[in-house]
Each structure stands twice: as C-alpha cells, then as structure tokens.
C-alpha cells in the first residue's frame, strides 16, 4: 500500500476549540464546501496566515484538493499566505477616506512604524497595509486594526492608537507570564 492511501487518525494543527468549531462548521451548510471561506479566515486568525499546513488541514476537512483551497484563498484579499504583524493596521485610502486625509494618515503610520505597504515592524508587533474601502465612508478617514474599526481619524491620533496596542500587547504578555 502506498503511503498516500494509509489510513491514520487525522491530525490537526488547530487548537481543540477551533478544531471543534470546524467540526461543527462543516456540518452546518447544505454543502460542506460552504464552510471553506470562514474556515480559512478563522484559521488565519489563529495561525496568523495560511501556512502550507493550514491549507492541507482545511483541504482535508472539506475533502477538496490543496490546489482548490489555494485557488479560492488567493482570490480573497483578506487571506494571506505570509505572516502579518500581531496587529495588522489597514488604512483605507479609497475615495471617501482619501478626500478626508486617508493618505496623510497612511503616511503618518509609515513614519511612525518605519515600514511601507505590507511591511512588518522588526518586533513583529505591527504590519501596515493600504486597503480598499472598509465600509466606513461617512466616518472617514478610517482604519482597521485586525478587525477593530477606528474612524474619523487624523494623523495626530496615530501615536495614541499605536500606544494603546503596544500596551495591550504588553498586558497580554504579562498575563501569559
């Protein structure tokens, strides 16, 4: 028997909680594959990005090929195949934010963090991304840090936002210690 066909207990790279959530998710829809996109997003939330192991695990759970998973994942702009910072800062520069200083905001983040678009700070704490419309047009300019919205910003608020995440990270670190 070739190793390809060996029957073994499926191992997973996900935490027991996420694994259990996935087990429920694939049962939820009329068709298993509908769980794919949420699974990729939640897997990314836990692992940080779609590593080869994530792709393989998700493919196995849904019963599709890894090529299929990559093909779908690479279509969606929130999904990434490379790690981002602990806090991924997504600055909208689309028209409504642009009109109200989105680029100035983005520039300020670049200066403060010393990284460019899709860059990660050396400590891995922050990554910066210029993104398309995030649906906060009437409260422009707006950003998302991971999934948190911050709206009606101006560049002078950038240091404060960064500090709040730095302290959050520190508090988490201490809690772990």
């Amino acid at each position: 028997m070739s190793p390809k066909n060996m029957k073994e207990e499926p191992l997973t790279i996900f935490s027991p909680q996420l694994s259990a959530r996935f087990d429920a998710l694939v049962q939820k829809y009329p068709v298993k594959r509908s769980a794919l996109i949420p699974m990729l997003l939640y897997a990314q939330d836990e692992v940080g990005y779609l590593s080869d192991a994530v792709v393989a695990d998700v493919a196995r759970r849904i019963g599709i090929t890894e090529l299929d998973v990559r093909s779908v994942a690479s279509y969606y702009s929130m999904l990434r195949f490379k790690p981002a910072g602990k806090y991924n800062i997504q600055v909208c520069t689309n028209i409504c934010c642009m009109l109200r200083g989105g680029y100035e905001l983005f520039d300020r983040f670049r200066e403060e963090l010393g990284v460019e678009h899709k860059g990660i700070t050396p400590d891995g704490l922050f990554s910066l991304e210029e993104v398309e419309c995030i649906g906060a047009c009437s409260w422009a300019p707006a950003i998302q840090v991971n999934y948190d919205f911050h709206d009606e910003l101006d560049p002078d608020r950038v240091p404060g936002i960064l500090d709040s995440y730095r302290s959050q990270a520190k508090a988490e670190g201490e809690a772990h210690a």
């Binding site: 090929t65 090529l67 299929d68 990559r70 093909s71 690479s74 279509y75």
Partner: peptide, 9 residues
C-alpha cells in the same frame, strides 16, 4: 485529473 487551477485575481 484536476491538476490546474487559477490563483490570485
């Protein structure tokens, strides 16, 4: 065979 797909958009 399904060995080819599209990536990116």
């Amino acid at each position: 065979v399904w060995a080819l797909g599209i990536e990116n958009r």
